[in-house]
């Protein structure tokens, strides 16, 4: 039973959707078209317009070992941040779902981190992980040099990943909790009658049944760690030390706005965009088709 409203006036509907349309055009399609233009052209050395260079911008970034290093780093970052965030969120959601004391409170408390802007969280985590102060400071006093994200690339990357994961927990938690609460309680009760302990029930019964949600969150988290990591890295490490936290999105910013290599940066952003589009495509094709149990 579909009821449609028809407009007799031809311009009114266009006026009504104009604000949204203008937003999308100005902030998405126009920059994208500019990026495409830059990616396939090169600005002449002394100005005077761009000349068409075909795929040579892409060939040069693909031929660059440092670019592939950022790709690898991005992949590691994405997998680690997604993994940590989802596992912790799932654990918390499991506890909240088991209706332990204070569940109502936790349901809202766990979501709050999601409302914190990445740069703000980045500043906070910089303080938390500062080698010279706080609990880490006293650990460093006992074992000098055991933790210093300012000089150790591994430490710096770990710090950013932990912060990124922490920021995502609230979002993941809400989805996991909603999915778990959609499962009829009698299913876990049947599992309990069948003799399965809580952890086994989680593995055998709950996880397979919330698989669509797990998959959805997996994709969303991966996408977010490819794109949203920029704010965090810019505030916390600026890609350093020695590029050890330079992921794809940060390298394209540095190359474009610091190195003024617009064409190279545009090519990188096209690659990143294709990656995100591919992930979104997988999400739509796979998740939408997955069996939903009723």
């Amino acid at each position: 039973m579909e009821r449609r409203a028809y407009y007799r006036n031809g311009t009114l509907p266009w006026l009504l959707i104009a604000p949204q349309l203008i937003l999308v055009l100005v902030f998405f399609y126009w920059p994208t078209s500019q990026a495409l233009y830059w990616a396939f052209t090169l600005e002449q050395p002394w100005g005077g317009g761009n000349s068409w260079v075909g795929l040579s911008n892409f060939l040069s970034i693909f031929g660059d070992g440092r670019y592939w290093a950022t790709v690898g780093r991005s992949a590691f970052y994405a997998i680690a941040a997604t993994g940590i965030s989802m596992v912790i969120a799932l654990t918390l959601a499991m506890f909240a779902d088991r209706a332990l004391k204070g569940t109502k409170l936790f349901q809202s408390v766990f979501v709050w981190p999601y409302a914190i802007a990445a740069p703000a969280a980045g500043v906070a985590f910089r303080f938390i992980f500062a080698p010279e102060a706080g609990i880490i400071g006293s650990i460093n006093e006992m074992w000098p040099g055991i933790w210093n994200p300012a000089t150790n690339g591994g430490h710096a990357l770990a710090m950013v990943i932990v912060c990124h994961a922490w920021l995502g927990i609230g979002y993941n938690f809400i989805f996991f909790l909603a999915a778990l609460q959609m499962l009829p309680r009698s299913l876990t009760e049947a599992g309990a009658m069948d003799g399965a302990r809580p952890f086994q029930r989680m593995i055998d019964l709950q996880l397979p049944l919330i698989a669509p949600t797990v998959f959805f969150l997996l994709i969303m988290n991966l996408i977010s760690s490819f794109t949203d990591s920029f704010g965090l890295i810019d505030v916390m490490t600026e890609g350093g030390p020695i590029n050890s936290t330079e992921v794809m999105v940060y390298k394209l910013y540095v190359d474009g706005f610091k190195g003024l290599d617009y064409s190279g940066a545009a090519a990188q952003s096209i690659v990143l965009m294709l990656l995100v589009i591919a992930l979104t495509f997988v999400q739509f094709r796979w998740v939408e088709k997955r069996v939903h149990y009723n």
Partner: peptide, 14 residues
């Protein structure tokens, strides 16, 4: 040592 049959069967759908 009890087994239970639930109102909505509570079969594992997967």
């Amino acid at each position: 040592g009890c087994a239970m049959v639930f109102q909505n069967y509570a079969l594992y759908p997967h």
